[in-house]
Simulated scan of single mutants.
Amino acid sequence: MFYIVICEDDILQRELLAGYLARIFKYLELEYELIEFSSGEELLSNYPDNIDILFLDIQMDKLTGMNTARKIREFDSNVEIVFTTAIIDYIHEGYEVRAYRYLLKPLDYNCILKHTNTCINDLMDKKDTIVIKDRLQTAIIQINDILYIEVLRKEITIYTKEDKYIFKISMKSVEGTLVKKRFFRCHKSYLINLRKVNSLREKESVVIINNAEIPVSRYNLKSLKINLAHILGDILC
């Protein structure tokens, strides 16, 4: 079962998107539950538990979709936010709230089908785990929870939002698995989760993840920008 929310102040757009989603989930043969809201204020006041995908209109009266997303990220880091908008002026703000996609109006069924299907697959991937062990301990960590990994001498530290794990193993022992999951070696001492990057300060050669400043080597800066651009480009439809 997937839990879907639409927050859109235009009733015609809301009905159109709801109709598209009904067709999509029937086509994919998946069960879902849909809840609709007509404003950001209404959504925040009645925020459902365990939302998987939130379709959020950016240009709403009073509380905009972007500001609604900012408030949501204060307490929900898991929901995939898909913005719907008639303009792309806000796309640079997507990193701040970790937007999954931008869908441009007028909404197109095939575009929504493509990205909803991809999102569902990514949600399933979130359940992926990695088993990490050394001589003293074994841990099973959800890959999506990893913010970044730091290596110092013969020891790695895995940082998540809530915890950190220290293992006496090499970076290479985990890097091969994680680079296939949108991780990037930005520095000889750091492997970062690209989906968790909040911003890139190019002049200082650092990326910001969860308020941590992580150095980027000059050699890797261009490749990092390309990888981040691919993610940003991938969220626009």
Rank of each mutant, 00 (worst) to 15 (best):
E80M: 10
I72G: 10
Q59T: 05
E93Y: 07
L43H: 09
L54G: 09
Q13V: 03
N67Q: 09
Y47F: 12
L34M: 10
Y102E: 03
Y102Q: 07
E41G: 09
L21I: 12
A69C: 04
I91N: 00
D89L: 00
G65R: 01
G19S: 14
L63G: 05
A86N: 12
L104C: 04
E74R: 13
F55V: 06
E41F: 09
D52N: 12
L56G: 01
L34A: 08
D57W: 15
E33I: 13
L103I: 14
A86R: 12
Y20N: 12
Y47C: 08
G19I: 09
G19F: 04
A69P: 04
L56K: 01
N67M: 03
D57T: 14
L12G: 08
Y102V: 02
I81A: 02
R14T: 11
I91K: 01
S45P: 00
I24G: 02
R98A: 15
E42N: 12
D57I: 15
E42A: 13
L16N: 14
L54F: 09
D49R: 14
Y47D: 01
M66R: 05
A18E: 15
D52V: 05
R73K: 11
H92I: 08
L12N: 14
V79S: 04
L21E: 03
T68L: 01
F37G: 06
K62I: 10
F25L: 13
K105G: 12
L30Y: 03
I91C: 01
L17F: 11
D10E: 12
I72K: 07
F25N: 12
S39G: 03
T64W: 03
V79Y: 02
L12K: 15
S39I: 00
I24T: 09
L12D: 14
R23C: 11
E42L: 11
Y32G: 03
R101Q: 08
I11R: 05
G19W: 03
I72W: 05
K105C: 10
I24F: 08
I11F: 09
T84H: 06
R73W: 06
K62R: 15
E33M: 11
F83I: 11
S38A: 13
D49Q: 15
Y27I: 10
N50R: 13
Q13D: 12
I35P: 00
H92W: 00
M66C: 04
I35L: 13
I87C: 08
D89Q: 10
E31L: 06
T64K: 05
L28W: 03
G40V: 09
E31Y: 00
E74I: 06
L103K: 02
I88C: 02
Y32S: 09
E36D: 03
D49F: 10
Y32M: 11
T84L: 12
S45D: 14
Q59A: 14
I58S: 08
T68I: 00
